[in-house]
Design a protein around this nucleic acid. Sequence first.
DNA 1: TCCCAACCGGGATACCCATCCCGATTATAG
DNA 2: CTATAATCGGGATGGGTATCCCGGTTGGGA
Lengths: 191, 191
Amino acid sequence: MDERPLRADARRNRARVLEVAAQVFATEGVAVPVHEIARRAGVGTGTVSRHFPTKDDLVGEVLFALLRNLVDEADALAERADPGTAFFAFVATLVRVGAANRALAQELAGTCCGVDGRAEFDVPGRTRELLAQAQQAGAVRADITYPDVKALMTGCMARRGGPLEPVIGVVCDGLRTGAGHRRTQREGTTT
Amino acid sequence: MDERPLRADARRNRARVLEVAAQVFATEGVAVPVHEIARRAGVGTGTVSRHFPTKDDLVGEVLFALLRNLVDEADALAERADPGTAFFAFVATLVRVGAANRALAQELAGTCCGVDGRAEFDVPGRTRELLAQAQQAGAVRADITYPDVKALMTGCMARRGGPLEPVIGVVCDGLRTGAGHRRTQREGTTT
DNA sequence: TCCCAACCGGGATACCCATCCCGATTATAG
DNA sequence: CTATAATCGGGATGGGTATCCCGGTTGGGA
């Protein structure tokens, strides 16, 4: 196909753009203009959009690596720990990573370009699985759904610039079975 | 000052724009273009920007009423209920209102125009006070700060379109002193 | 009823941004 | 060293939004 090797300078520029983009998107979110990425990388906007025809392509490439790591971690936890421990550990990891990386937080919150959900990078899918297993094992409240977990994690990620232990603690304690809640009298409510 | 009464048609248009804006911002958030508000209100864009010179003016006017109600509710709770009950009830109210109104959620999350914080409409201030009193009364974990609470509530508000009891339950249980292990009455579930 | 200031509509203007294009530059094969 | 195709920079283009402006319309007091 188009697997022709890039010229040396082109390869260098591409890598530099990717590096700068990763840093900027992590710090300021995906809303940063492409021309700003180009400026900081010391290249023209044309160079950026030649290597990444669309802004989503650039964002996607930046997110791929991060999402893959998370999926790997989820899989590792799933086989190394019991369901409850695995689920809570993964939630804590997602929150920490999301709080440290705005772009990733936006992606996980669904306010980004939506590159996850693709086979090998399906973080939401992994989270769903871990949740289901933790609930089956009786470690997590049964009335909780994935959207609930997603919303709670999204909130925790917004706690940028402060210690994360408190919010993670609150959420994990609250999710745990046996925390006092009135589930007993409202089993299958749907609003 | 310029308190000359508006002409009848002008007053009618202003009210209609405000009404439509409130509805649209609540449903779709403050990012909706002004010209869209004008279109749905059946007026020209000029009419909107004459009554509300800036988009922030329009958004602000819409939010004022909502914020005032919330502040009133906070004050009422503060004097009618014990600190713990008041705090949890207010948190539940904020989450419910925020989940039902995107513009308000954006405002409370700080991703809007920031009209609150003004004396009589200072919802964050009231929340802070209720939190401090609840902690002093020993009803809420001592390691929690206002930004933690804000982040958690922001997350819950993102749970649009589903039942809110689970997320509110998780957060309130998690915030409660001695959380993660039992206890609970049914506070914090006011509608 | 008549008249004019207040009001209306929506086109004009001024940004901002992503993406495309093309003349100038440069890596590198021969 | 030279030729040439790949690459570069940044201006041009198209689309979107907020705000301003002005010729036409109308409410309501005389």
